[in-house]
């Protein structure tokens, strides 16, 4: 038994241990530089979006990878792929398919066993995936119904290419980075340090704040309240799925289904 036959030292690692500080500072510097330049010189269209995607999603993903024990250059590779995909998307919406390279890179890291700390190792329980599908479908369906009832939002029609591009972005950047950081890294560390409830509250609060600060979110009270409502439920559900299954995949599935419903609305992306 561990408590009897294994030596133990009191004390725990800091919550933010292994954070790639220099990389995050560099990304913050890039954002600041982009904003400064945008005020002084005309930038190419979509340049700020490229910087924002690289800094926002890249910072989350690189931090998650570093917390899992990967070297900083693994995060740098992910950021480079994100930048490339964002640049390609500015040139042509089909370039968003480039975002799919990021999950491939993460899958390669996971296959070599380096992302076990993020819940990306071993088999994925089928029941957890089924529960994730139900959760994502319920929240997504509820969003579609509520949005159409309260805000009069209609589904996108005849713009399948944009929806697919947004879905590729979600798969390779938005959902992947958020689930890796807020669930695999932050919630996982917090629940191991304190408790499930504390981890859930911390991860959910950070998750909601991240999306409320997202410049792409419509700045109306209804959208902000709705985002807080659905993202809180999604985050809580995904934390439970992660705790229950020990895998990050079910939460990713639920989030993808929810964001797929979100992309069907005539806003976002």
């Amino acid at each position: 038994m561990w408590a009897l036959d294994r030596p133990w030292r009191p004390g725990t690692r800091p919550l933010l241990a292994d954070t790639p500080t220099r990389l995050l500072v560099a990304l913050a510097g890039a954002v600041a530089a982009g904003l400064l330049l945008a005020d002084r010189i005309p930038l190419p269209p979509g340049a700020l979006r490229v910087v924002g995607v690289a800094a926002g999603q890249g910072a989350l993903l690189a931090t998650a990878l570093a917390w899992a024990g990967c070297r900083t250059r693994s995060g740098v590779v992910a950021i480079v792929l994100l930048v490339a995909a964002a640049v390609a998307t500015t040139l042509d919406p089909a370039g968003a398919l480039g975002y799919l390279l990021v999950p491939l890179w993460v899958a390669w890291l996971a296959r070599s066993g380096r992302l076990a700390a993020l819940g990306l190792a071993g088999a994925v329980p089928g029941r957890a995936v089924l529960a994730a599908v139900l959760l994502g479908a319920f929240l997504g369906g509820h969003l579609l119904v509520s949005a159409s009832l309260t805000l009069g939002v209609r589904l996108r029609a005849g713009r399948g290419g944009l929806v697919l591009a947004a879905l590729a972005y979600d798969v390779g950047a938005n959902v992947l980075a958020a689930e890796c950081f807020f669930r695999g890294a932050l919630f996982n560390r917090a629940q191991r340090r304190w408790s499930f409830a504390t981890g859930l509250l911390l991860a959910t609060a950070a998750y909601v704040v991240r999306y409320l600060l997202d410049p792409l979110l419509p700045k109306s009270v209804e959208w902000i309240v709705g985002a807080a409502f659905y993202l809180t439920l999604l985050s809580a559900g995904n934390c439970w799925l992660f705790w229950w299954s020990g895998s990050l995949v079910p939460g990713g599935v639920a989030a993808l289904l929810f964001f797929a419903a979100y992309r069907l609305l005539g806003t976002g992306a």
């Binding site: 009897l4 294994r6 133990w8 009191p10 076990a116 819940g119 304190w194």
Partner: peptide
């Protein structure tokens, strides 16, 4: 047996309860 420096050993010698939030192994 009780290994020196283990949680049980520390409780036996210190006389106070110990809580370890995570042993660090396992998903």
């Amino acid at each position: 047996r009780v290994v020196a420096g283990s949680v049980a050993d520390r409780v036996l010698t210190g006389g106070a309860a110990v809580f370890v939030p995570d042993t660090g192994d396992g998903s």
